[in-house]
Amino acid sequence: MVFVRLREILACAPTGSGKTVAFCLPLLAHLHQPTNKGFRALIISPTRELASQTHRELCKLSQGIGFRVHIIDKGAVAAKKYGPKSARKFDILVTTPNRLIYLLKQDPPAMDLSSVEWLVVDESDKLFEEGKTGFRDQLATIFLACTSPHIRRALFSATFALDVEQWCHLNLDNLVSISIGHRNSAADTVEQELLFVGTENGKLLAMRDLIKKGFMPPVLVFVQSIERARELFHELVYEGINVDVIHADRTQQQRDNVVSSFRSGKIWVLICTALLARGIDFKGINLVINYDFPTSAVEYIHRIGRTGRAGHKGKAITFFTEDDKPLLRSIANVIKQAGCPVPDYMIGFKKIHSKLRRKLEKKPPRRTTIRTTPRFLMKKGGSKQSRWVNK
């Protein structure tokens, strides 16, 4: 008998460098061919959009082999679809944590993970965040449900906080840590620029100036909240460009339609929150605009990582005001490390206390409403503006 000691993997590589292929190909090669054992591989993603993208790539890579790759759409429907017997018809499952937990908590559980040989956690630093945005408790439940003694666990991300690495060393067996390039760094294929706009009103002027000068679509614009995404959309919808907005308050069908339209070129400018900052691969994004300043260097890296992917060049412009000064130093350091110019005075700012930094990450500064349109036009029935008010 030959005993092979399995290694758990913690992998970090820049955005757009091919992490999805890096875990999909070994997974498919190891599974070799379809069986009737049930789900043998499980991939966890933080958002539905990223799960859909991974599912699509797996289907392409396994074409002609016969693997049955599935994604959970709705928990209630899946509870009937993935019963203990029917689950043996499938090989690979891609899902978000919440939908899988819903199935595991059914009585009896509507999902059997005892045959899972590969457990991949994509964008794992996001999944391990604590609080409302994290999935640490759900991941613990999923880990315990995967009971096969032959299971391999692999965690991938473009960034890693120290606490994630510490957790992995404490809870995973025989861990090997792999880093491509500098840890928590931006891709050097992105031309990065910081643009001082004075006040919140200056952001809209700067945005309209960029549109007036001309730009090459597609463009992603990041804001810090759903409400601000709506507000900016109402301002840009009359600028003569094809613009839309995506955020967590829109239905899944609306979000899927927007993503599809953006991929096909029907939408030139897409306004979004952090929902799309993780892992989503849009081909040929030419420009990322950080309308609202990122709350951390990690968030900044993921936002601008939507451009400059797979060796292609891209550009990122980040607006900042006086209110953003506390976080300016950390972003400037990321930009400088990537080889882009930044003023020396930004690097020289005093480093903020860790307690204040964590507070700013959880609660960004309050910003004035994005609006130049008179309020009565926003509410006037029958106008073009009113048709978009619920975007």
Rank of each mutant, 00 (worst) to 15 (best):
A110V: 09
D112C: 02
D112W: 05
L113H: 00
S114C: 10
S114T: 14
S114N: 06
S115G: 08
S115Q: 14
V116A: 05
E117T: 14
W118K: 01
W118N: 03
W118H: 12
L119M: 15
L119P: 11
V120G: 04
V120C: 07
V120L: 10
V121L: 12
V121Q: 04
V121E: 05
V121T: 10
D122P: 05
D122K: 01
D122V: 08
D122N: 06
E123M: 13
E123R: 04
D125L: 07
K126S: 07
K126D: 08
K126Y: 09
K126E: 14
L127Y: 11
L127I: 08
L127E: 11
L127M: 15
F128H: 04
F128N: 01
E129G: 03
E130Q: 10
E130H: 08
G131C: 06
K132M: 10
K132N: 05
G134A: 05
G134N: 05
F135P: 03
F135M: 11
F135R: 02
R136M: 12
R136Y: 12
D137N: 14
Q138F: 12
Q138D: 15
L139M: 13
L139I: 13
A140R: 00
T141M: 03
T141N: 00
T141S: 01
T141A: 02
I142H: 03
I142M: 03
F143D: 02
F143H: 03
A145H: 09
A145T: 05
A145Q: 04
A145E: 10
T147M: 00
T147S: 01
T147L: 00
T147N: 00
T147P: 01
S148L: 06
S148P: 14
S148F: 06
S148V: 05
P149C: 09
P149R: 06
P149N: 08
P149K: 03
P149T: 08
P149F: 12
H150T: 15
H150I: 15
H150S: 14
I151K: 10
I151N: 06
I151M: 13
I151V: 15
R152C: 14
R153G: 13
A154P: 04
A154G: 07
L155N: 05
F156N: 01
F156Y: 14
S157G: 06
S157P: 11
S157I: 13
A158F: 13
T159Y: 10
T159C: 09
T159E: 08
T159W: 10
F160Y: 12
F160K: 00
F160T: 02
F160P: 02
